[in-house]
Write a protein that binds this DNA or RNA. Structure first.
Lengths: 247, 247
DNA sequence: CGCCCCGTTGAGGAGAGTCAATGGCTGTGG
DNA sequence: CCACAGCCATTGACTCTCCTCAACGGGGCG
């Protein structure tokens, strides 16, 4: 669960004893192969998920076959905190690479949060960040050109991937196809291919072996109007949000 | 607060004594004029908001002037539950019509939730619904044609508006400009105007006095691939999610 | 070895954008 | 009471980004 700890620590360092709480949760580990569904639309959702290894996508399908990927899920990401309201999933989650995923029962998770305010704060922050990522995806798809969309997405993935790995570099592993990128960005795979070729020609990125190197991050960020504020990786000024403690 | 009660009751009816809890919150009412900012990007967020009257928009601006409206906020909507993590706002919220808005202090709100599980469940559901609306907005902007986007948005607004009013009809008040619609849907005002004219010609909608009548909701929903599952207005099967009660 | 998936490239088409002009409505001030 | 400014919706003509259809080639894998 190192990826999860790296992620949550972006918000606030988590002391060992509190982290140990996580180890006592009622949880279950599963492995998914590429293309396997982790959550199916319409299924009841009563567990939360943590990705330990691999990439997954959350998407919706239209009845005529069009697909829109809503977001990418990377190691360390926590998802479906919404499951705590025990509704039915309104979307599908599928593994794109081999994934190790931990499921935690709703009740077990809630009681852990109620015992530890810092943990609750960190998970709440993760939920806030997830929502901010969705909002930024709306801006990306709604108002950016193809080139800007691709660069913007690469920059986000680079930041998020490194956050899970607890490092900082200009390399992004990109274990997905042009079609996946296209379906995330509201484009076609043909146009993604063309645009990325142009970006390579323009020395914005290099590609090798399912990984992208961003040649000049500052320049690319400017071209793509990428501002990482929305990832909320800076520490809040006020102390962690307080949940009622069980006395 | 009737709009809020109507909204939350979609999830689960709220008994009077529990509702009365809401009246005891530490809150403050403010009126905003059209164009006034309710939340500015970069400001610390430490309160939650409820819209009592009027429409507001949440948007992000690019440095070159492009604007993307992330979502519309209608009477009864609760927003910035994210504020509970006391981060800085990564977007701006502006009144589009005159708005009455109630602010509730974070601490007061949290303690009310901790005293009432049904209330906590209802607000959690509102947060889940808000996120589902964002996801659907991504699908709309990413994969639908101009005509589909507009129809889809109108159907969503119709459902949400009627939810706040506690009724069900085919009329949507639409107190916004073509430019607002365009900036929400990733289009230009010119194209929105053209497309809506075509929709009027095709007898899909009628417009009169800043209100739209949807002539055949079922047909429009089919054309626009609108499926209201994402609004989660059906009741969950399991009982409300339990928060730890203060003993 | 051969299949299939994926990325790439080309040619042509369509949906949405840009630029620009017009007209209605509303509010305001002489 | 009328004139005028400002905003908004609409429409036309033209442009351009991105899509569609299609062909080709490379690489992984049975």
């Amino acid at each position: 669960m190192i990826a999860l700890r790296n992620r949550l620590s972006q918000f606030s360092p988590i002391p060992d004893p509190i982290w140990a709480e996580m180890g006592r949760l009622d949880r279950q580990k599963m492995t998914f192969f590429p293309g396997e569904d982790v959550i199916k639309e319409g299924e009841p959702a009563d567990r939360i998920f943590v990705i330990r290894r691999g990439w997954a996508i959350r998407y919706k399908m239209l009845d005529d076959g069009r697909r829109q990927i809503v977001n990418f899920m990377l190691p360390g990401d926590v998802f479906d905190l919404q499951a705590l309201a025990t509704l039915r999933a309104d979307h599908t989650v599928t593994a794109v690479t081999a994934c190790d995923i931990t499921f935690v029962q709703q009740e077990s998770f809630m009681s852990a949060l109620s015992r530890s305010a810092p943990l609750a704060g960190a998970f709440w922050w993760a939920a806030v960040q997830e929502e901010a990522i969705l909002r930024e995806q709306i801006v990306r798809v709604g108002r950016l050109s193809a080139k800007e969309r691709i660069g913007h997405l690469l920059l986000e993935l680079q930041r998020r991937q490194n956050a899970g790995l607890g490092r900082e570099q200009n390399e992004v592993g990109l274990p997905i196809t042009r079609t996946d990128i296209a379906d995330a960005l509201g484009l076609t795979s043909v146009h993604v291919s063309r645009t990325m070729s142009a970006m390579r020609r323009d020395n914005l990125i290099e590609e090798e072996n399912h990984a992208v190197r961003i040649i000049d991050r500052r320049m690319l960020a400017q071209i793509c109007h990428f501002d990482d504020d929305y990832l909320h990786v800076r520490r809040p000024e006020k102390p962690l949000f307080q949940v009622p403690e069980r006395s």
